[in-house]
Amino acid sequence: MTAMQIVFLLTAVVALFSAFRVVTTPNMVHAALWLIVTLSSVAVLYVLLSASFFAVVQIVVYVGAIAILMMFVVMLTRREMRDRGPQLGKQWPWAAVLAVLAFGGLTWLVRSAALPASPVGEVPATSVADLGAALVNPGGFVIPFEIASVLLLAALIGAVYVAWTRRNS
């Protein structure tokens, strides 16, 4: 067992435990904090995959923006948090069965496929530059890139419109 495998296993344990706490803890503030732990350990996994750019993006976008936005909304909808009894609906055993089935099926699928035990080749030093060029290359991903831009703009305007307070109503 190499050092990278040990780091991977430790990160996996942290990620899975914190993800379990995210979906089970009754206190929503704690759930948001555990979500930050999960997202950070996923960033560690990206480093292990030598995708350092994505590790940084994960920290900036997920931990820095999305998790903090979650925290804001948890605070703004505060009365709902702790004083309403159990946080799991009465359908939770079925949800657990479905989740276990999904995990079992995916694991069976992964185990039955012939997958490489080690990566092919090395990540080129210019991989981030290649990604940037491919995103604006007409032969590459410029249309998905532009659609994502329009989607983000629409989400921005939609979010502002939906959450707007009308003074007279």
Binding site: V23, V74, W94, A99, F103
Partner: peptide, 23 residues
């Protein structure tokens, strides 16, 4: 892939079982 499957299953459980919409 197995770690991702476990994370996906936990997320699925959260979506199906939690009451709070933010959760």
């Amino acid at each position: 892939l197995i770690l991702a499957a476990a994370l996906f299953a936990l997320g699925l459980f959260g979506v199906l079982a939690r009451k709070n919409a933010v959760a």
